[in-house]
């Protein structure tokens, strides 16, 4: 199994349920099935995109993999070690190798700390450097993300959104990680700044051999940066494919709808293209529809979709889809 060896992280049947507590005694009466049985591999050095609408569980997936949340069920195997049930104190070496870049550049930096201290905190925690060496390392990290050492003594609120996001990247790079989870790192930024950050992430990947899990709702950016993309809907992965393949040959009705909803900055193209507007909204993840979760918004839905949950089928060339329509065609 050569393919497995290459995978830096393997996610197997991962589930994350959030209990909904009610009443005086706070009894757990229901569960929000934020992530419901998903599996995927990410190979060393690749960028794996994860897209879906808000509430589909893509952010929860990222946070569960990095163990900000406890795993309800399933396995997360990072570089051969199953970290899904590890205690926090045993995760130290994992935390040195896996980092995260957050969505909100305004909330993800502690506003009472200087930029230098924010970037230097991982060094303190893991005792990687101190004194002059720490200072040098902070300056080096700031330079890596295009900031200067004068910025180290400033506070986050003095920076623009794009600059803050770069500070967040510098913090993530401080421990010299192998794998970075990018949780919608550009969705809060202006268009002209988005490209700066995306280019920086691409350059860093080349230089440092990083692996990314790139979470976003913006399919056009995800396609640009990712090698492979997984499309999530209501806690489940409905389609995984190489990014070119996913765009050229979208198979799941949801992927098709998602692609056609993306505005194209070209008036002639956008006026001529036929679009599949997706009606309605995402159902509640507390009571997801039985069978295929997408059937309530799918115009091709038929009887089987109501009763049976579709399983992932390989279409060849790393393209897998979970949809009953595939059986039907045969």
């Amino acid at each position: 199994m050569n393919k497995d060896k290459d995978a830096i992280i393997k996610v197997r049947n991962l589930k994350k349920y959030f209990p909904v507590k009610k009443g005086f005694l706070k009894r757990k009466v229901q569960y929000v099935k934020a992530v419901d049985d998903i599996s995927f591999d990410i190979k060393k050095g690749e960028t794996f995109g994860l897209v879906g609408e808000s509430g589909c569980g893509k952010t929860t997936t990222g946070r569960t993999i990095i163990r900000l949340y406890d795993v309800t069920d399933g396995d997360v195997i990072f570089d051969g070690t199953n970290i899904s049930n590890m205690k926090e104190k045993d995760l130290s070496s994992f935390r040195k190798r896996v980092q995260m870049i957050f969505q909100d550049p305004f909330a993800s930096l502690n506003s009472r700390m200087t930029v230098g201290d924010i970037v230097g905190e991982p060094l303190d925690i893991h005792k990687l450097a101190s004194g002059k060496e720490r200072q040098e390392r902070i300056y080096y990290l700031l330079k890596t993300v295009g900031l200067s050492k004068e910025h180290a003594s400033r506070y986050p609120h003095e920076f623009s959104g794009g600059q803050r996001q770069r500070i967040g990247i510098a913090r993530a790079l401080a421990v010299d990680p192998d794998f970075i989870i990018c949780d919608e790192p550009i969705s809060a930024l202006d268009v002209s700044i988005q490209a700066q950050v995306v280019n920086m992430l691409e350059d860093l990947q080349k230089e440092l051999g990083l692996t990314y899990l790139f979470i976003a709702h913006d399919l056009s950016m995800v396609r640009h940066i990712s090698d492979r993309i997984a499309v999530m809907y209501l806690g489940k992965i409905v389609e995984v494919a190489k990014s070119e393949e996913l765009y050229k040959n979208p198979t799941h009705p949801y992927t098709k709808a998602l692609l056609s909803a993306i505005p194209i900055p070209d008036p002639d193209v956008t006026h001529k293209r036929e679009s599949v507007t997706l009606e309605g909204e995402v159902p509640s993840p507390i009571n997801p529809p039985k069978g295929c979760t997408f059937r309530t918004r799918c115009k091709y839905a038929f009887e089987t979709c109501k009763n049976k949950e579709p399983s992932m089928k390989n279409l060849g060339g790393d393209h897998t889809v979970a949809c009953h329509l595939l059986d039907n065609k045969k």
Binding site: L68, S92, V98, S108, L109, R112
Partner: peptide, 27 residues
């Protein structure tokens, strides 16, 4: 808030998060 999550992903202990991150912001 995300900055607390960030502190957890870099391996900060609970005490550190409380003293360095939460309390200064609640000051």
């Amino acid at each position: 808030q995300e900055f607390v999550m960030a502190a957890r992903t870099i391996g900060a202990t609970n005490l550190r998060i409380l003293v360095r991150h939460l309390l200064p912001n609640a000051m």
